[in-house]
Amino acid sequence: MTGKQRKQVWNAVQLTLIMIATFIMLVPIVWIFLAAFKTHVDVYQLKLFFTPTLENFSTVFDDPYRLGEKLFNSTIVALVTVIFAIPIATCAAYSFSRFRLRGETTMLVMILATQFVPAVVIILPFFVMFRDVGLLDTRLGLILVNLAIVMPFAIWMIKGFIDGIPMDTEEAAMVDGSSRLQVIWNIVLPMAAPGLLTAAIFCFIIAWNEFLFALILTNKNAVTLPIGLALFKGEEGDLWNLLSAAGIIIMAPMFVLALLIRKYFVQGMTMGAVR
């Protein structure tokens, strides 16, 4: 075999492996996508050709499911979480990156360590605390919980981006006449913007998909979309067609965001790693 042939074979092998992996990952999504447009009768048959209907999408927004409320809750919770998380995390990340703080490494490791605590372990204390201060089943409560979940992640990610900004650039701005705040506003933020955007979208995705805390801490008013899915388990069995329609509604923003951040994803992941 010549080198060229060997390369072609290798490419074919790679392509096949990628196709298999993609297939395995996509099958459930395709199934859901099809089911969302099927009638209750069709859904149990693996038919690829059927008369599609949009009825499921209107049903899920009607009584008794009222998915609109959940959609609203999810949107508010995820958006407000991001709106607070990113500025706070940016301040923290800037300090960690640029100032030599006492116990800096310890703090950074501790922040990361919170990520390793299984949610089920701390969910009970959260429940008790929230019950005592009246935050159970409120959007505010969920926002607080989600902030706690996304902050460590956001701090580490944004720190990676700020680390990648050369110190020289900031020092040049200071000598040119900027105060520290002007340096951050005029230099650091614009340069870290792709990183901030990536972090924001990641945080949004995490908050949007958060399930366990929402399951335990809400029951009626603040229920989010992932929890809302449980509604479609009726007496007549699982309503797969409705479940699938709701699933599409949950996934749609994720697809859009994934497309948006594709460009920055690798950059964001590697920038922190290189240093």
């Binding site: 050369p166 020289d168 650039t169 020092e171 040049a172 701005a173 200071m174 000598v175 040119d176 006449g177 900027s178 105060s179 230099i187 340069m191």
Partner: peptide, 18 residues
Amino acid sequence: LPKDRDVAMVFQNYGLYP
């Protein structure tokens, strides 16, 4: 602070604003 010293500096690696 550097900004109050009224100096201008050329950095070894330029320090431009990309």
